[in-house]
Amino acid sequence: MMGQKNKAKAYWKENIRYVLILLTIWFLVSFGAGVIFKDELNGIKVGGFKLGFWFAQQGAMYVFVILIFVYVRLMNKLDKKYGYED
């Protein structure tokens, strides 16, 4: 029984680590690129739009959707690693 508890704790700890890393990336892209580094990024144009503006308007959403898929993939691997897959 104790082995199962340790396995569950290790699983949860690794899960939280993934979440914190992915949320940090999302924060840096949405707040960092869209607000903090907007002026520096606006010097670069993509498709006729300033890069800072693009990140603030659409880029952060694209990155968020990509991070969802990354999280799903990471969790599928984690489930297999700890024997929780269906």
Rank of each mutant, 00 (worst) to 15 (best):
M1F: 13
M1L: 14
M2Y: 07
G3F: 11
G3E: 13
Q4T: 12
Q4A: 11
K5C: 10
N6F: 15
K7T: 09
K7P: 01
K7E: 06
K9G: 00
K9I: 13
Y11R: 09
Y11I: 08
Y11N: 04
W12V: 09
K13N: 14
E14W: 01
N15K: 15
N15I: 12
R17H: 11
R17E: 10
Y18C: 07
Y18I: 12
Y18F: 15
L20W: 06
L20C: 06
L20E: 04
L20R: 04
I21C: 08
L22K: 08
L22E: 12
L23F: 11
L23E: 08
L23A: 11
T24M: 06
I25F: 03
W26V: 01
F27M: 13
F27T: 12
L28I: 10
L28N: 08
V29I: 10
V29E: 04
S30D: 06
S30W: 04
F31V: 15
G32W: 06
G32L: 05
G32H: 06
G32N: 06
G32D: 05
G32I: 03
A33L: 14
A33N: 13
A33K: 07
G34H: 12
V35A: 00
I36C: 05
F37P: 04
F37T: 07
K38Q: 13
D39K: 14
E40R: 00
E40H: 00
L41S: 07
L41K: 07
L41A: 08
N42D: 14
N42A: 04
N42I: 07
N42V: 07
G43I: 00
G43N: 05
I44C: 00
K45W: 00
K45D: 01
V46K: 04
V46W: 13
V46N: 04
G47I: 05
G47Y: 05
G48K: 01
G48A: 05
G48V: 03
G48R: 03
G48P: 03
F49S: 01
K50T: 11
K50Y: 10
L51N: 09
F53D: 15
F53M: 10
F55W: 09
A56S: 10
A56I: 00
A56V: 01
Q57V: 06
Q58N: 14
Q58L: 12
Q58Y: 15
Q58S: 13
Q58H: 15
G59H: 02
G59R: 01
A60P: 02
A60G: 10
A60V: 03
A60T: 08
A60D: 13
Y62N: 00
Y62Q: 00
Y62F: 12
V63N: 05
V63W: 03
V63P: 03
F64G: 08
F64D: 10
V65C: 07
V65Y: 12
I66R: 01
I66V: 14
I66A: 11
I66S: 07
L67R: 09
L67Y: 12
I68H: 10
F69T: 03
F69K: 02
F69Y: 04
V70Q: 07
V70G: 09
V72I: 14
R73M: 10
R73L: 08
R73D: 11
L74N: 05
L74M: 13
M75C: 07
M75V: 09
M75W: 11
M75A: 06
N76F: 01
N76S: 06
K77D: 15
L78D: 11
D79V: 00
D79L: 03
D79M: 02
K80T: 10
K80I: 08
Y82D: 03
Y82W: 02
G83L: 02
E85P: 03
E85Y: 14
E85F: 12
D86W: 12
